[in-house]
Design a protein around this nucleic acid. Sequence first.
DNA 1: AACCGATATGTTTTTAAATACATAACGCTT
DNA 2: AAGCGTTATGTATTTAAAAACATATCGGTT
Lengths: 112, 112
Amino acid sequence: MKQIRVKCWIEEKGEKFYGPGPHELVKQIQKEGSLSKAAEQMHLSYRKGWEMVQKLNLYSEEPLIILKKGGPHGGGAKVTPHALAIFEEYENLQLKIQELIKQQDKLLKVLK
Amino acid sequence: MKQIRVKCWIEEKGEKFYGPGPHELVKQIQKEGSLSKAAEQMHLSYRKGWEMVQKLNLYSEEPLIILKKGGPHGGGAKVTPHALAIFEEYENLQLKIQELIKQQDKLLKVLK
DNA sequence: AACCGATATGTTTTTAAATACATAACGCTT
DNA sequence: AAGCGTTATGTATTTAAAAACATATCGGTT
């Protein structure tokens, strides 16, 4: 049984900015409050996660994720309201695309 | 200026079957009548192109691309009507997705 | 029989991404 | 001042995909 899959992302000047990876990362950071734990949840090296955060913040008008080191729990990571807004809209877009895909039985029919 | 990008493909049991790569390959084979020329047009190694053809035919009920060696022009590649049908429907799907994307200014607005 | 342009296929090399590993720095708590 | 959990960052290793290279093969034409 074949199925249609879709992946969408946001880019600027050919550079990927926000896609499935960052989306999941934002989700996990929000849940865990820590970049290292978020990365671990995703089976992602901390290094890679950290680089994703840098890129997210670099390409955004305002910061998306605030990293703090030291302090009560050794530091932590927080998702800004702006990041949350993007998260919600991205989620929304994915939903709409999924709805569209569901209606595409023509393609699946020709594939058998 | 940020923009939304989308990529869609068809898979079976987690294995990619038909996506942007094969789609372009089918297009070029149809135009050139030769796998080697099609691959060259795509800046793709012949080897890789050949492997894509094998996979396309393997995962499909009926063959999508017929390769012939020897003969008048040394051989050649042809796209079957079934492949053409998939090609058209895939093209169609992409168009519909693009239309949907155009309506998604909410996401682009939050990004600024 | 020699030649030609294409397919067929094995082996090696290149490339880029991700991981792994190691260590430093931070700032609060005790 | 010692300890903790986290962020920060450099270097080396692994991995997988793609490309590059080298031949072999086929079946028509000349």
